[in-house]
Nucleic acid binder design. Structure first.
Lengths: 206, 206
DNA sequence: TAATATTGGAGAGTCACACTATCCAAGCAT
DNA sequence: ATGCTTGGATAGTGTGACTCTCCAATATTA
């Protein structure tokens, strides 16, 4: 299949495919001459994944590349790979000023209350701190009680996810990294719908 | 307080404040002459809210304006206002082609399985459909069983949230609309941290 | 075989976005 | 009175994600 066939099959324009090739999101085809190369099913699948990440998931091309690189070349430490994947995903957080003895006070308190590991090197810690600070700044601080309630429910979900993690390492990385990126929008949508459903049953304002 | 004082207090530059005024995110100050106006605490608070929405929450200026408009001018129907807020938040979904008898098959099946209301006019339905389709396209479809598990946990969270909704309508709108925007990042960060914690206890790859 | 179309590759152009900078005449402060 | 600040408008900047245009080298088709 040549580039125009790939474009037809995938629904992505030739120009955009060239752009993804240039940006390193898509692996090159097999060159058959100076001005020809053939593409196969792996390119079609990869394009689908790229479009899923840059479209519905809302990643930038750079973020998508970071995620794809992790899936292609995971380290042998799944735990560390998950950390890197989380760091590559939005929301981006500003680097901590060095020398701050307690850069994430809100996140630390929350995790201690939940009895969870607090490791300041994990990117999600900074993300949690930023999110809690934003809620405070906006005048809707999150109470410790609410954090506990959220944390407990989400821990159930996490346990469910990890129980179903594939045993084979490569599949496990894909499951973990892509699952983080792809399942989060599902979770947000389900939460919004749960709000709607509960509100409807309470017969609010209707 | 004049505009430079507002800039100093809020940490937002004069040029950016002028930009927000032009874009209608920030209400004008009280003009005291042709070239002077005074700003007060309400402007400082509003700027904090704008920065929280456009920064950590990651909304565009247009999306932030849509949310702020809803908070300023909610309808008297809280349920409908929540719907509008969800529609103003990312992820954006493409409009449904008219005449499609079943535009959201995945979302409909999921909500039926959960025993929740299915109302195709609610924007989160389209968001759920898009997210489920993206996961499928990327090769990691979400099983019905997983959807049930997610949906049940998130319904607990939603019930918790609505139990704590303020009784006063104006406060309820603010709580609902801003809560959707501000608490979602917290939930995602907590989920990521829960994954990390569960993974650590399973002693994966470490 | 000749005419036409397509390809890979590279560079430039486009469009939207979120600011940021520059101007200006009209105050205000000293 | 004289230099600084203001509101308001217009223009400019930098980034990101494409999209367009070229080109010579093939492929395809008549």
């Amino acid at each position: 299949m040549r580039i125009s066939g790939l474009a037809d099959t995938s629904g992505v324009s030739v120009a955009t495919i060239k752009y993804y090739l240039r940006e390193g999101l898509l692996h090159p085809g097999v060159a058959t001459s100076a001005t020809q190369a053939t593409y196969d099913d792996s390119h079609v699948r990869r394009l689908r994944l790229i479009r899923a990440l840059t479209g519905p998931v809302g990643l930038s091309v750079q973020q998508a590349r970071a995620i794809l690189t992790l899936v292609d070349d995971p380290g042998d430490d799944l735990y560390a790979t998950l950390g890197r994947a989380v760091g590559a995903l939005p929301p981006a957080t500003s680097p901590t000023p060095a020398g701050d003895p307690d850069p994430y006070p809100r996140a630390r308190a929350a995790l201690e209350a939940l009895g969870q590991v607090f490791d300041p090197r994990f990117p999600a810690v900074a993300q949690l701190e930023t999110a809690l600070a934003a809620a405070e700044d906006a005048g809707l601080p999150i109470s410790p009680e609410r954090l506990l309630a959220y944390g407990r429910s989400l821990r159930e979900l996490a346990a469910y996810d990890l129980q179903r993690m594939p045993a084979e390492p490569r599949a496990a990385v894909e499951y973990t990294v892509l699952g983080t990126a792809l399942y989060e929008p599902v979770i947000l949508a389900l939460r919004r719908l749960a709000h709607q459903d509960v509100a409807a049953r309470l017969d609010l304002g209707g």
